[in-house]
Amino acid sequence: MRQSLIGLLVTGLLLPASLVTAHHSFAMFDNNKEIIIKGTVTDFQWTNPHTWIELIVAGEHGQQTHWSIEAGSVAGLSREGWTRRTIKPGDNITLVAHPLRDGTPGGSLMGVTLPDGKHLGASLEPKTPNK
C-alpha cells in the first residue's frame, strides 16, 4: 500500500443549529475538517442505522492503522445507487471524511472513489467556500 493519508483540509463548514434529522449527534466529528485517505477494505457493513467501512491504511513509515468510517443508512444510500456489493473486502478505495475529534482513526464519510474509478458522494477535491 502506498502512502495513504494524503491531506488534512480545513474547509470552514458551519453547522446550523436547527432541528436536523440525524440518528445521532455528529458533534464527535470535526465537521470543519476533511481528510482524504486511501486504504484496503477489510469489511463493509451494509447495516442500519449506519453503514460502516472498515479499512487498513498504511502510514508513511509502513505502519498500518485500522480506520472505521461511518456512512449513511441503508435507507439513504440505497436511494443513491449503493448496494451491499458496492464495496468489498480487498477493495483499494480513496475516500473523504470528517475525522473524529478525539483522534481515534475514524470519521464520517462524505465521498468515495471505488477501484473502478466510479465516484459516489462529495468530491475528493478540497472545498473552498470562499472561491
Binding site: 453547522l15 446550523p16 436547527s18 436536523v20 434529522t21 440525524a22 440518528h23 445521532h24 455528529f26 466529528f29 449506519h50 461511518e70 456512512a71 449513511g72 439513504g76 444510500l77 436511494r79 443513491e80 464520517s108 464519510l109 462524505m110 465521498g111 459516489l120 458522494g121 462529495a122
Partner: peptide, 12 residues
C-alpha cells in the same frame, strides 16, 4: 448523491 455528502445531516 446529496445524502452521502452530508451524512447525519440528510436533506438539511
Amino acid at each position: 448523491g446529496t445524502f452521502l455528502a452530508t451524512p447525519g445531516r440528510a436533506g438539511e
